[in-house]
């Protein structure tokens, strides 16, 4: 797709955040994903032009980071944590279950383009294991069944809200814009903290220090 003048303006505003323009590569790549769904050649070429870099320098950066995709992902990109702790706690079973349920392999996309699947590394939510991410929103304490229900709902167009996130699940593109640093105004939605995050505070309020 062609980038509009308005897209270019946004890109300029992203570049202006930084003392040196090259720093804007990463948010610009996120932004390209928010427009195109993945990092297209047109996107790489435009970023190179805007930042006065060789195209190879931009593509070198884009291939280093796993969140930048070189082909379309689903409207809902599902990541199942299979790092050790989540894997042991059920992540392996969830991932196997979803592959089977969706009929796709790792990095695959369902034929309807709705859901793509990827096994991911530790997502800093180990106290909520096993964790599933959708468009990089938290779905905590999943089971094989809950994960299947989640992707079914996605394919039906009504995914449930993330456990700790906005009130509804944004699309891949919408969230890519957030990662580009564009405020979608939804910061106030959702919980401030899940139960495990409050464990110590609750114990303290209950007067439970540890016995020496």
């Amino acid at each position: 797709m062609a980038f509009t003048d308005q897209n270019i303006e946004v890109m300029d505003s992203i570049i202006k955040r930084y003392p040196r323009s090259r720093s804007a590569i990463m948010p610009l790549l996120h932004y390209v994903q928010s427009l195109e769904g993945y990092v297209t050649n047109e996107g790489i070429e435009l970023i190179a032009k805007k930042l006065e870099l060789a195209t190879a320098e931009v593509s070198a950066v884009s291939t280093f980071y796993t969140q930048y995709k070189r082909k379309s992902v689903g409207e809902y990109h599902v990541g199942v944590c299979t790092n050790t702790l989540c894997a042991v706690m059920g992540g392996d079973a969830i991932f196997a279950g979803l592959k089977d349920h969706l009929g796709v392999e790792n990095d695959g996309v369902t034929a309807d383009g709705k859901v793509s699947l990827e096994h991911i590394e530790c997502n800093a939510a180990c106290d909520y294991a096993p964790v599933v991410m959708a468009n990089w929103e938290f779905y905590d304490n999943q089971t094989v069944q809950s994960a299947k229900d989640l992707v079914d709902a996605m394919r039906a167009g009504n995914p449930p809200a993330p456990t700790r996130g906005p009130n509804t699940l944004p699309t891949w593109k919408e969230n890519s814009a957030v990662l580009a640093g564009l405020n979608d105004g939804r910061a106030n939605e959702g919980t401030q903290a899940g139960e495990p995050s409050l464990l110590g505070l609750r114990l303290s309020k209950e007067g439970k220090g540890a016995k020496a």
Binding site: H30, Y65, Q67, G79, I120, N123, A124, M133, N135, W136, E137, F138, P162, R164, G165, P166, P170, N175, V178, L179, G181, N183, D184, R186, A187, G190
Partner: peptide, 10 residues
């Protein structure tokens, strides 16, 4: 880190 959209929002 980029995999935590709601944290980014906050």
């Amino acid at each position: 880190r980029g995999e935590v959209t709601h944290v980014v929002r906050r």
